[in-house]
Nucleic acid binder design. Structure first.
Lengths: 192, 192
DNA sequence: CGTCTATTTGAATGTACTCAAAAGCGGTGG
DNA sequence: CCACCGCTTTTGAGTACATTCAAATAGACG
């Protein structure tokens, strides 16, 4: 149950067994069915979420009804609305499951406890956010410097597992293009 | 000299005078002339940089010679190449000054010392990166959901000081459009 | 004043979009 | 097992927006 998250954490910090079991005592397991929401617009996000198994997405719903995917999260990834989590303000986006999923939730109050009791976790999340920050910078660079085709190829090269399991229209919503455009673009690829 | 950075840090954590003076003892002041490089592609980024005064940019140089701006940094902002800083690998981008600037450098080795001596700084940078992460998510959402015109308006609304001091072509390089397109787009604005 | 760079403008091109419709695919119920 | 439904993907035709290339204008700096 906690093997994946233990590996995830010890990638950045060392933990004693008692520290880890204290950590796991703060977690709440949750099972999500496909299409079930973990967070809805207007709610306050009071947790960080670790994906044990499955696939989630965080997306913004435009006035025109368009969904724009901010991030995917599969096994071994963290997800959450950092904006709402940090500010305590209502979320402006949704998080839901693209398939049946198994997640572990860490409540904000528990996390503050954790920071206090095991300060190493402050380091863990510092490094985790620093790495996520780098990943977002890459995505921004891609979006301002590359064509839709290049961005698509980079995406499936960087995240092949996601490219496998996620429907095309979701990938289009992540790349910032229309599903029709992604379809056409893919048709052109073999010739090149 | 250190007033700005003190305010910056105490926005997230409380510091005693001795902690702060220890912190400042680790900083190296540096003066940059316009167009001077703080970091060049291929170098390893071994510092975090705080801007006391002036304006810097981090940009990527494409194979076609195009500059793509990853971030601006003005007074009271931090900048650095987190990718190179974290991994120890050569940087893939440049950081230079858009005007004469005054910066404070915190070397990686000093920072590790600092984390060890005053663990609160781990918390400071954790929060700082978390907030930066949120800002980048907003930028990504803008780039996948908005038109060039909307992105430009949001940019000058969000960062009016930068919009003031930075030449138009630099803003275009940040938005991911050509200078000609930004010029045309601006011409259209008054009619709306 | 002259040079260098930034900005603007024009005309032609290309890429992604809209709207609409057809084809494909998966799941459900008869 | 098959027929049907809903949703995704594909295809087509016309349109909108940003790009390219080129040239003119405007500004900044020495």
């Amino acid at each position: 149950m906690f093997d994946t998250i233990r590996t995830n954490i010890t990638r950045h910090i060392q933990l004693h067994d008692d520290e880890f079991s204290y950590f796991t005592s703060l977690l709440k397991a949750k099972r999500l069915r496909k299409k079930q929401f973990l967070l809805e617009e207007g709610e306050i996000c009071r947790f960080e979420c670790f994906v044990n198994e499955g696939c989630l997405r965080q997306y913004h719903l435009g006035d025109d009804g368009q969904e724009h995917i901010i991030q995917f999260a599969i096994t071994d990834w963290w997800i959450g609305d950092q904006y709402s989590f940090l500010t305590g303000l209502p979320s402006q986006c949704f998080i839901d499951a693209l398939e049946d999923s198994d997640v572990l939730l860490l409540e904000k109050s528990s996390l503050e406890q954790l920071y206090h009791t095991v300060p190493k976790f402050e380091r863990f999340f510092r490094i985790a956010f620093q790495k996520s920050y780098v990943a977002l910078q890459r995505r921004i660079l891609a979006s301002i410097s590359q064509s839709a085709e290049e961005r698509y190829l980079e995406f499936i090269r960087t995240y092949p597992e996601i490219g496998q399991k996620v429907p095309q229209r979701q990938i289009a919503a992540y790349l910032g293009i229309k599903p029709e455009s992604l379809s056409r673009l893919r048709k052109q690829l073999p010739r090149k």
